[in-house]
């Protein structure tokens, strides 16, 4: 495992925990898209079914379990514990527009036509677009709390670091996984606009708000 990959995993973990802490401490999930969080829970579940079939390393297993546990906890906080604070009427992205095409694509373009592999592929495709309901919500309300911006930034950094990890692996190990790379590129591009806003506004101490 190279440094990019490790830092990528850490920043992914940081994003997930940051969001959990934000909701827990403020006792509120205002401004957070429950739909994106459900999609991420689906992504982790579909991808990490190999926990039952394949042992890779202690690190790998622990991270997978933590990701899944945190992601389901977040969904539970939003839809149950702090349901009253959930901004459902601003969280209106139609998730079927993401789930259906990515599911079809996973059936058509995959490494191997087996149930686990199709689910893995589906999770990769879905992850690349799962943040859209959240970005849509930010654009609809025109702003995001600073901590939500940090969350989105850490999440974007994670996939960007993975891109460097793939360049590294291709160069030094001759390894590449085209499905992961293309989906990872799409995912990173979706964050670009947000990165720009984050650097020009949030880092200068301003709240992220979009021009009207």
């Amino acid at each position: 495992m190279n440094l990019f990959r490790f830092l990528g995993d850490l920043s992914h973990l940081l994003a997930i925990i940051l969001l959990l802490l934000k909701i827990w401490k403020s006792r509120s999930c205002a401004g957070i898209s429950g739909k994106s969080q459900v999609l991420f829970a689906v992504v982790f579940t579909a991808r990490y079914l190999d926990l039952f079939t394949n042992y890779i390393s202690l690190y790998n297993t622990c991270m997978k379990v933590v990701y899944i546990a945190c992601s389901f906890t977040t969904v539970w906080l939003i839809y149950s514990k702090f349901k009253a604070t959930y901004d459902g009427n601003h969280d209106t992205f139609r998730v079927e527009f993401l789930v259906v095409p990515t599911a079809i694509l996973a059936f058509l373009v995959n490494h191997d036509f087996t149930p686990l592999e199709i689910l893995w592929t589906f999770s990769i495709y879905l992850e690349s677009v799962a943040i859209l309901p959240q970005l849509f919500m930010v654009s609809k309300t025109g702003e995001a709390e600073t901590i939500t911006s940090h969350y989105l930034f850490a999440l974007g950094v994670y996939r960007t670091l993975y891109l460097f990890n793939w360049i590294w692996r291709y160069h030094f190990e001759g390894f590449f996984d085209l499905i992961a790379i293309v989906a990872g590129l799409v995912q990173t591009v979706l964050y670009c606009d947000f990165f720009y806003l984050y650097i020009t506004k949030v880092l200068k101490g301003k709240k992220l708000s979009l021009p009207a």
Binding site: R5, I56, Y67, H111, D112, W120, F175, A180
Partner: peptide, 10 residues
């Protein structure tokens, strides 16, 4: 070829 199907990344 094996490496492709053992997804060792998260």
């Amino acid at each position: 070829q094996d490496t492709i199907f053992t997804h060792d990344e998260l």
